[in-house]
Design a protein around this nucleic acid. Structure first.
Length: 232
DNA sequence: AGCCAGGCTACCG
DNA sequence: CGGTAGCATGGC
């Protein structure tokens, strides 16, 4: 077993399954899967999401809205979008851009992100339900490597490992690769050391984010190696 | 009062 | 090409 897989198993054992991607429109065990959840919207241990096209699209726009932005702010934006009936590709496509901006304002960068959401809606509609290729996803303005992989992994259950700043920071400081390693290089390292398993890809990224949030919490001072090494 | 958050684009040399 | 300023809000 690779060291990365050992770390994954330890983290999963310690924190438990995270149930990413969080959906405001899912309620675990509920028959009505398109109604607002009264909890956080997570579905730990249930890998049957997204259950429909609307949930798939919600993951896509959440992936854009959370760029360099705390998820708590994204949730506020998603609630606003829901209240304004703007959680579907068709409604965002038709939406007045000022209404759209106002809805997503809590998630920040609303001038940029409103354009990104419009582009994303057009693209989503053009897919007609098909799974997008990574390259065409990245041709959509506002979708870079991480957002593309998040969408593919969580919205389309494709085997793409997601590399974010936390992943880079934690695993470079613990010697898995150099700090200068680029996105593709880091992604390849994880892919080469892990089984080809969607659940592992989904949970590992979620666990890394959770762990990083806790390890860095309140802390300016850099990441402490002992925090990740305890999972070794 | 700052610093930070699950990045990306555009532009710089 | 690699590097980085700018984008914006809310939480701590």
């Amino acid at each position: 077993m690779s060291r990365l897989l050992q770390i994954y198993n330890s983290m999963l054992n310690f924190y438990g399954p995270q149930g990413w991607w969080p959906l405001t429109s899912c309620k675990n065990g509920s028959k009505k899967t398109d109604e607002p959840d009264n909890g956080k919207g997570y579905h730990p241990g249930d890998y049957s999401f997204p259950k429909n096209s609307r949930q798939r699209f919600e993951i896509c726009i959440g992936a854009v809205l959370t760029q360099n932005t705390a998820w708590t702010n994204v949730e506020k934006a998603l609630v606003n979008l829901r209240e304004n009936k703007l959680l579907s590709a068709n409604s965002i496509k038709k939406a007045d851009v000022e209404i759209l901006k106002k809805s997503i304002k809590p998630a920040g960068y609303y001038n940029q992100k409103s354009v990104y959401l419009k582009e994303l809606a057009d693209f989503f509609i053009s897919l007609k339900g098909k799974v997008p290729a990574r390259g065409e996803l990245m041709n959509v303005k506002g979708i870079g490597p991480e957002t593309a992989d998040s969408i593919l992994l969580y919205a389309y259950n494709q085997l793409e490992f997601v590399v974010d700043n936390y992943t880079k920071r934690i695993f470079s400081e613990t010697g898995f690769f150099d700090k200068s390693a680029n996105y593709h290089k880091i992604k390849e390292i994880f892919i080469s050391k892990l089984p080809e398993d969607i659940v592992i890809y989904q949970e590992f990224h979620a666990l890394i984010v959770l762990h990083a949030k806790l390890a860095f919490a309140g802390g300016k001072t850099g990441f402490r190696k002992t925090e990740i090494l305890k999972f070794n």
